[in-house]
């Protein structure tokens, strides 16, 4: 038997902890089932805490012509981390699209998510300055805050991140 001491005066921390646990649980379940997970206004905060790093999160749409190149480049970089890194792909318009895992590029993601809820609020929770352009990439280094990038990374940028 174990107990968790929740902070008495820090409800936000408690919320983040609960969110992270929820994300972990649904992540395990979804990966086992091979399906995408929901990405709502709480997911990003939890993801920053829990994703194995280095991690790259690609926000994409099903009609984004530039997203495959971005995903392919990051997938190749992740292979060089020998399984330690994480490539997550978040599909903004995928909530009603079946078989996202069969998409040749989305299939390269270690974790696949779909937006669930108010798109503008979800974007704001990730980065208030993100205007919906895709691919929108969040790079989470081994430690520290995420860096955001619009469009596929250049070879130099990828090398710098995976170094």
């Amino acid at each position: 038997m174990f107990s968790i001491r929740l902070p008495e005066r820090r409800p936000q921390v408690a919320a983040a902890l609960a969110g992270a646990c929820l994300m972990l649980a649904t992540s395990l379940a979804a990966r086992a089932a091979g399906g995408p997970q929901n990405f709502d206004t709480t997911t990003w905060a939890a993801m920053k805490q829990s994703l194995p790093r280095p991690a790259a999160v690609v926000f994409a749409t099903t009609d984004c012509a530039h997203c495959p190149a971005a995903i392919d480049g990051l997938a190749a970089g992740m292979r060089r981390t020998r399984g330690k890194g994480t490539l997550a792909v978040v599909i903004m318009d995928g909530a009603t699209v079946p078989d996202l895992r069969h998409h040749p590029h989305f299939a390269k993601a270690d974790r696949l998510y779909v937006f669930d809820g108010n798109e503008m609020a979800i974007r704001h929770s990730v980065n208030p300055d993100w205007r919906g352009l895709t691919p929108f990439i969040a790079l989470l280094p081994h430690s520290g805050e995420p860096r955001f990038h619009t469009g596929p990374l250049s070879t130099t940028e990828r090398r710098r991140f995976f170094r």
Binding site: T26, A30, A33, G35, P98, L100, V114
Partner: peptide, 16 residues
């Protein structure tokens, strides 16, 4: 889910 979906064939919990 970890127990029931261990074979990877059950319905996904995601919204897709």
């Amino acid at each position: 889910f970890a127990h029931e979906n261990g074979n990877g064939h059950a319905a996904p919990p995601g919204a897709a």
